[in-house]
């Protein structure tokens, strides 16, 4: 069994190194992680307290209803299981964390997760050069009874999936570099938000947002925000 798990992991790594399409990487990881008992996962950069999660998400195989709710209600900032990834470099299981009865908002997030079919999970923090760090959060709809070897396999597979996903978003790195704020402004422009709305969402000044939008247009070499959004989609900066 041990050898078999190792084969699963090495086959995955050999395959994923060759994939250059984020949806193919997502599908490949989904099949393999499901075979190890984890049908759901999300691979994402970790947002700081004043940031939203969405712009950091690289691969999303969460149940749709849970992703919608988690992002709409900005659950990450109350999610003790997710927040723990900000403070450790080692992988952990949900069950490794003790959440006290007094931590109501954390318990509410866990209850909601359960109602969406996520009852247990395993989180892999990883180094990231452009966010605080990144993590792959695997989840399952039944209590997990994975062996250490199975978790080690999930661990390395998620790391190589992250590497492949990053390479798949390569144009992003060949571009004049966008700052996190510029990327956020682009993201919200793509969601149809005005400069004023963006300033409210991000909690920064209107003039500041206008400045970001101006430098964005310069960097993307376009005249209007609509063109910036189109260019962002074409280059893979905005997930379509």
């Amino acid at each position: 069994m041990t050898l078999q798990i190792e084969h699963v992991a090495f086959d995955f790594i050999d395959d994923v190194k060759r994939l250059r399409d984020p949806s193919a990487i997502l599908d490949r990881l989904r099949i393999t992680s499901a075979s190890l008992g984890y049908p759901y996962f999300i691979l994402t950069g970790l947002p700081l307290p004043n940031q939203r999660l969405e712009p950091f998400v690289m691969l999303n195989a969460w149940p749709e209803v849970w992703y919608e709710r988690y992002t709409a209600e900005e659950h990450f900032h109350h999610d003790r299981v997710g927040q723990a990834a900000m403070r450790t470099t080692e992988p952990y299981r949900w069950s490794d964390l003790a959440i006290g009865a007094e931590d109501r908002s954390a318990l509410r997030v866990m209850d909601e997760a359960q109602s969406c079919g996520l009852v247990d999970g395993f989180i892999v923090p990883m180094f990231s050069s452009d966010s605080w760090q990144q993590a792959c959060a695997f989840a399952t709809d039944r209590p997990a009874q994975s062996s250490d070897r199975e978790l080690a396999a999930l661990h390395v597979m998620s790391v190589f999936a992250a590497g492949a996903a990053r390479a798949a978003f390569q144009p992003l790195r060949d571009l004049p570099e966008l700052t996190v704020r510029e990327r956020e402004c682009l993201h919200w422009a793509a969601a149809g938000k005005s400069a004023w709305e963006t300033s409210q969402i991000l909690g920064i000044g209107l003039e500041t947002v206008r400045t970001y939008r101006r430098t964005l247009r310069t960097k993307l070499d376009v005249a209007t925000m609509a063109q910036a959004v189109a260019e962002g989609c074409r280059l893979g900066i905005i997930a379509s």
């Binding site: 190792e6 080690a152 661990h155 790391v159």
Partner: peptide, 22 residues
């Protein structure tokens, strides 16, 4: 250290692992 593996991917390095992490 497994945590740092993404750094090498950022450099475009061809990383071959020789076993599962422990």
């Amino acid at each position: 250290e497994t945590y740092w593996l993404p750094r090498w991917a950022d450099f475009g390095w061809d990383v071959e692992i020789l076993g599962l992490p422990q």
